[in-house]
């Protein structure tokens, strides 16, 4: 009997190690040699978009593939139309980064032409796989951090243009609101604000100045940006211009530009959750290679995020994510 258990244990162990070594072997042998991979990105002005794009393109090239790149200049319709060019370039697969639902008809056309689509931050029924951050964790964590930062009570204004338009934003802002349900003394100021997709910092600066003019001191405690943090740059500027140092700012994405603002002394920008856009782009490219290798992929691949609380947290995250020292 003992022997039997021993046998089973050894068999299971060797099976596990075999599986592991197979995966390692497969990863080492992943290749996009001879493949033409289209990479469509909605824009390259912002750190996040640019890094996800760089991660995807450099990994495709590292794996021996050829990149056909198109950039939407932060215009969702241009981004969508760019997929036509990839279709016409007869690429072997497409990595599509961000974009609203105007890309869906294009994904459908690519799929119909037998070109597999891999998305970044855009779950789609026409895609093989979507690589994204753990948006669930991002939404709940920023909800808790923000509630703590204002002592569990107060009035919050939120920039929330994309909750209904982009699924990732629906998750992030939706779960932020879900956490706030347990804080009956926190009130979200209505109507919610809607930030611009292009030119976000300047637009958010103007909207915040208007918001501050309409809400005198003591009537507003926090400003949250529901899905990203480029608008937060403008929000912080407006708070400084108006001298409203009683208001805190929270947002999501945590690129080097916003971590630097958070690390400043007495910064109003107190909490964030940092993503790893380069790794996300690179993982999407690896998934393309896995697909061609014959591996079956799960519909979603999640990439870890780094919660950032306070100025010290910002400095740590900055270092941890390889941006340097602050």
């Amino acid at each position: 009997m003992k022997n039997l258990f021993g046998f089973i244990a050894v068999s299971v162990l060797s099976a596990v190690s075999l599986t592991t070594s197979n995966t390692v072997l497969a990863d080492g042998h992943l290749s996009l040699e001879g493949k033409k991979i289209g990479v469509a990105v909605v824009g390259t002005q912002h750190f996040w978009d640019r890094e996800a794009f760089n991660g995807a393109t450099s990994t495709v090239e590292k794996l021996g593939g050829e990149v056909v790149a198109v950039d939407g200049g932060r215009d969702n319709q241009v981004h969508a139309d760019n997929h036509d060019i990839l279709l016409n370039s007869k690429v072997d697969a497409v990595i599509s980064i961000l974009g609203d639902d105007s890309v869906e008809p294009k994904f459908e056309a690519l799929k119909a032409a037998g070109i597999p689509v891999f998305t970044v931050d855009h779950p789609s029924q026409h895609a093989i796989n979507n690589t994204t951050s753990d948006n669930y964790y991002m939404g709940t964590t920023i909800g808790r951090y923000m509630a703590d930062a204002i002592g569990g009570e107060g009035k919050v204004a939120v920039f929330n243009a994309f909750e209904n338009a982009l699924r990732i934003c629906g998750i992030r802002t939706g779960l932020w609101k879900y956490v706030l349900q347990d804080y009956p003394n926190i009130e979200i100021i209505q109507p919610e604000l809607a930030e611009e997709f292009a030119n976000a910092p300047e637009d958010a600066r103007k909207q915040t100045l208007d918001l501050l003019a309409a809400n005198p001191k003591g009537t507003i405690d926090a400003i949250h940006v529901g899905c990203w943090d480029q608008p937060a740059i403008g929000v912080v500027q407006a708070l400084e211009e108006a001298g409203r140092d009683e208001i805190i700012v929270t947002a999501l994405d945590g690129g080097p530009d916003t971590l630097e603002i958070m690390a400043e002394e007495n910064s109003p920008f107190v909490a964030n959750v940092a993503q790893q856009p380069n790794l996300i782009g690179s993982t999407a490219a690896m998934n393309v290679a896995r697909h061609f290798h014959g591996d079956s992929l799960l519909p979603q691949t999640y990439v870890d995020v780094v919660p950032v609380n306070g100025a010290e947290g910002a400095k740590e995250a900055y270092k941890q994510l390889g941006y340097g020292e602050l």
Binding site: D75, N76, Q77, A80, D81, S102, F197, A198
Partner: peptide, 13 residues
Amino acid sequence: ARGAGSSPGVEDN
């Protein structure tokens, strides 16, 4: 039809 909806900013192009 082309955008499966209305997206802000289409007017510029």
